[in-house]
Each structure stands twice: as structure tokens, then as C-alpha cells.
């Protein structure tokens, strides 16, 4: 072999090795921090909870002894499963109601509001700047015995004394959660609706589609991604909420997170609490997967 060739070849190899080293360095720099973040703040805590859920408590001490008793205990006791069903029911009702109110609101903002759009958008997101607790508590003042509704009913003369029908039950929990999560539906739907080029809507009308047909066949399918995002937010967050049932719920409207709180608090059964958390995560994950499957079926991604 020609010596000149040989030396150039070895130079190429060392150059390539250098390139490879640089690429590895860049890879670590770019993906290292986010991976570390995920590891520390998501993977490790979840793994920890998963591990705890297979341990047990004996004599007020956690025993590191792998077993599935916690899961059996949960599913064998109708008290717990009823709370799980109740939470699912509340989350479903809240998601449905929030979509029924939030979607039209987003539609109004995107297509009807015109020049008042900015102000209205601001009014929709303004409640998000106050505390969640406060937003839940305010409904106590509205629904309570001395609240606005009772005041109005008595003022009009429909009732003689305060009605305690409105507060501390399933209804007040669903109403409050719906109110809280309406912006969570409205914002992603509004973004999706705003992104729809007006040309599509005009093309539909031009081809003979009236308002309703255009909505059903063009606007709705193209806004599904926003609707699914908002729906998932609402479902997951209302399913796992414990503040609202604590403040406004009655004895029958306990939700799953209240039980978890109890296990980590007074009951001091961290393993059982962890097992419930794993079940909660499982439910929400299934909901998310179902929703994204439904999304993929009903609409192709918008270019």
C-alpha cells in the first residue's frame, strides 16, 4: 500500500473517532439534563410508590415483605370499590359538563366574539390565577344555607327558610369541579379552533354546507385534538381531586384521593395508600390511552 494513502486513512479514522466523541458529548449535554429530571422527579417516585404498594404494615411499622395483600384488600372491600366508582362517576360527569359548557365557550371566543375576544379570553383564564382552594370555597358561599341562592329564593318568596339541598352532596362536588375545569377545556379547544384556517370553513359553505353541516364535518373533527387534550386534563384532575369533596362534599361523596390522604395520614398505612395510588394511575392511564385511540380514529392530524 502506498504510504501516503495509509497515513491519510489513519488520519480519517482518528478524525471520525473525534467526531464520534463530539457527537456523544453533545448527546449527553442535550439529553442528559431532561433525562435526569425525569429520573429524579418522575421515574424514581413512581418506582418508590410501586415498591411500597407491595409492602405491608405490621405493628405500626412498614415491613419490607413483598405481597399483593393491599390490592386484594382494595378490590375485596366494597367500601373502597364504591369510592373508586364514585370518583369515576364524578370525573365522567365533570368532564362531560365541562365539555358541554367549555366547547361552546371556546367556539364563541374563536368565531363570534370578534374584537372583544381578547377581553373575554382574559376573563376565561383570570380565575386560574386565584387559588384552587378559593375557587372551591366560593361555592360554599353561593350554595350554603346563608348563601346567595337561598337568599334569592327567600327574597322572591319561593321558600320560607334556607334549603340545605345544594351543599355537601354529589351535586355540589360536580358543580364546583365543572366550574373549576371549564377553562381547562376552553383553552385547548379555543387554540384548536383558532388554528383552523377560515378557508376550510368557507370551502365547506361554498360547496353547499350550511352552518350545522360545516360544524359537524369540518370544525368538530379538526378541533378533536384540543377537545381530547382538555377532556384528559379535566378527567385526570377531577378524578384525583380531594379538596372539593373535602370542602363541599358530604359523607357519600368521598373520592379516591380522600382515601389515599387517610392512608398516608391518620391510618398510617403507606403501603395500602401506595397501592391505591397505583390503581388511580392505572385508571387515568387507561383513560388517556382510550382517548388518544378515539382521537386517532376520528381525525387525522392537522397539517
Amino acid at each position: 500500500m502506498n504510504p501516503v494513502n495509509g497515513s491519510s486513512e489513519s488520519a480519517t479514522t482518528s478524525f471520525q473517532a473525534e467526531r464520534r466523541r463530539q457527537r456523544l458529548l453533545w448527546f449527553l449535554l442535550c439529553f442528559g439534563p431532561p433525562f435526569l429530571y425525569l429520573l429524579v422527579f418522575m421515574l424514581l417516585p413512581y418506582a418508590n410508590i410501586l415498591l411500597y404498594s407491595f409492602w405491608k404494615v405490621e405493628n405500626y411499622a412498614i415491613v419490607h415483605d413483598l405481597n399483593i395483600d393491599n390490592y386484594l384488600k382494595f378490590f375485596e372491600n366494597p367500601l373502597y370499590t364504591r369510592v373508586l366508582w364514585n370518583s369515576l362517576f364524578v370525573a365522567t360527569v365533570v368532564t362531560t359538563c365541562a365539555i358541554l359548557v367549555g366547547y361552546p365557550l371556546a367556539f364563541f371566543l374563536a368565531f363570534v366574539a370578534g374584537k372583544h375576544r381578547r377581553l373575554l379570553y382574559f376573563l376565561v383564564i383570570a380565575p386560574l390565577w386565584t387559588s384552587f382552594l378559593l375557587r372551591a370555597f366560593i361555592w360554599k358561599l353561593i350554595l350554603g344555607r346563608e348563601g346567595m341562592i337561598n337568599g334569592l329564593l327567600q327574597y322572591v318568596g319561593l321558600t320560607d327558610e334556607p334549603i340545605s339541598l345544594f351543599l355537601y352532596n354529589q351535586f355540589s362536588v360536580c358543580l364546583t369541579l365543572t366550574y373549576i375545569f371549564i377553562p381547562f377545556v376552553t383553552l385547548p379547544v379555543f387554540t384548536a379552533l383558532e388554528k383552523i384556517p377560515r378557508g376550510y370553513i368557507e370551502a365547506s359553505m361554498d360547496l353547499g354546507g350550511n352552518g350545522l353541516q360545516t360544524f359537524r364535518r369540518i370544525i368538530l373533527p379538526l378541533s378533536i385534538p384540543g377537545l381530547v387534550a382538555g377532556g384528559i386534563f379535566t378527567f385526570a384532575l377531577s378524578f384525583g381531586d380531594f379538596v372539593t369533596p373535602t370542602l363541599l362534599g358530604g359523607p357519600s361523596s368521598i373520592m379516591i384521593s380522600n382515601v389515599v390522604m387517610g392512608q398516608f395520614g391518620a391510618a398510617f398505612d403507606w403501603p395500602f395508600g401506595s397501592a391505591i395510588v397505583v390503581i388511580v394511575i392505572g385508571v387515568i392511564l387507561s383513560a388517556v390511552i382510550l382517548a388518544s385511540l378515539a382521537e386517532r380514529r376520528s381525525s387525522a392530524p392537522v397539517v
Binding site: G199, Y200, E202, A203
Partner: peptide
């Protein structure tokens, strides 16, 4: 009927 400027073909 109209042929629109950017075609406006329905993407879905």
C-alpha cells in the same frame, strides 16, 4: 363554486 387561493382541501 370557488377554487380557493390555497386550495383549502380538507386535511382530515
Amino acid at each position: 363554486n370557488t377554487v380557493f387561493q390555497n386550495y383549502a382541501l380538507f386535511p382530515h
